[in-house]
């Protein structure tokens, strides 16, 4: 079997603040295979964005620190956590591309689109300006922009939100990266534009066989694009597995809650939406035991005392919940979870 593009082991990231240490990421491990689309889902503050940015070493130190024992092995040979800043600059943009959430603020307003796309090409590849500009035009065609020859001379303010996100994707793809990280790429966009961008990402993934990590809180987007899903809560992975396993055979009560709180077009209006009571814990002082215990309807004594290990559901599906322990009482997932909703 080919080596994974990315192997993350026990990643821990903390922010040292005046008021104490915020433990944003508390031991995250996962692998990403070539050509795979991995979705990281979770609510705000669960550490999904910090995880993604740490993969690119974009979180400034200080205040953030990658804790000892963390490992991010890229392409089977580069240990990202130990690279010097100089070496890291050769990786960013060339080996790993990133798409940010807000296309309005992530582009440079004083540079033309063409200059911004060719910037990375000029830095990482031995090509001249004319050649780089030609590549920029081709990339704009790839991301579905009309009149690319004219567009390269335009500035970001001349484009709409959806167009700007297409430009961001072109920049991220400029040097044919092995890994593309998309941090909430559609959150700032309208739903009809979101559909266009998700379609584009899927299309590009098929054409270029790039591995993609997509960070989102929208389970609809996940269902549309991902092969595998990582569910995060309070800085930890609570469940991970193939797309269909997470949607049709979820094992963690948090995943149940998340899936049930999304309204569906085909759901019954008269029923109350299921919500998860309470709110996520404070990561200045993360709770002892399972971080979800305080909001979990199935919490047992042990959940408040000891953090659960990852129990395997199948080869590639695991859940960090004490309910998975052989001695735990058998709990049936709530109605509406598991099985194919449409028969």
């Amino acid at each position: 079997m080919a080596k994974p593009v990315l192997e993350v082991k026990d990643l821990r990231v903390s922010f040292k603040m005046y008021a104490g240490e915020v433990q944003a990421v508390r031991g995250v491990s996962f692998n990403l295979n070539k050509g795979e689309v991995l979705a990281i889902v979770g609510e705000s503050g669960c550490g999904k964005s910090v995880t993604a940015q740490t993969l690119m070493r974009l979180v400034p130190t200080p205040p953030s620190y990658i804790k000892e024992g963390s490992s991010i092995l890229f392409d089977g040979k580069l240990e990202i956590t130990e690279l010097t800043e100089k070496k890291m600059e050769q990786v960013r943009g060339a080996e790993i591309g990133m798409i940010f959430q807000d296309p309005m603020t992530s582009l440079n307003p004083t540079m033309t689109i063409g200059a911004q796309i060719s910037e990375g090409i000029l830095k990482h590849q031995k090509v001249g300006k004319t050649e780089a500009m030609k590549r920029a035009t081709e990339l704009l065609t790839l991301v579905g922009m009309s009149n690319p020859e004219e567009r390269v001379h335009q500035y970001p303010h001349e484009l709409s939100g959806g167009m700007r996100q297409r430009v961001m994707i072109a920049i991220a793809l400029a040097c044919n990266p092995k890994l593309l990280i998309a941090d909430e790429p559609t959150t700032a966009l309208d739903v009809t534009i979101q559909a266009q961008i998700v379609d584009l990402l899927r299309d590009i993934q098929k054409k270029t066989d790039t591995s993609i990590i997509i960070i989102t809180h929208d389970l609809g987007v996940v269902a549309e694009i991902a092969h595998r899903v990582l569910v995060m809560y309070a800085g930890k992975v609570v469940e991970q597995g193939p797309l269909n396993d997470i949607f049709y055979n979820p094992r963690h009560p948090y995943t149940w809650g998340l899936l049930r709180s999304v309204p569906r077009l085909d759901s019954d209006n008269s029923k109350e939406l299921e919500s998860i009571p309470g709110s996520p814990p404070d990561l200045y002082a993360p709770p002892v035991g399972c971080a979800f215990a305080a909001r979990c309807p199935y919490a047992m004594e042990i959940c408040k005392e000891k953090d659960p290990a990852h129990f395997d559901v199948s080869d590639n599906h695991s859940s960090a919940c004490w309910l998975m322990h052989p001695d735990a009482p058998k709990v049936e997932p709530p109605v509406g979870i598991g099985g194919h909703a449409h028969g």
């Binding site: 739903v191 009809t192 979101q194 559909a195 998700v198 929208d218 389970l219 609809g220 987007v221 996940v222 269902a223 549309e224 797309l243 269909n244 949607f247 049709y248 899936l259 999304v262 569906r264 077009l265 085909d266 194919h340 909703a341 449409h342």
Partner: peptide, 14 residues
């Protein structure tokens, strides 16, 4: 088209 653009949180149906 607005209805159709909303992705369903259900991979098979999607």
């Amino acid at each position: 088209s607005l209805l159709s653009a909303i992705p369903l949180p259900d991979p098979e149906a999607q």
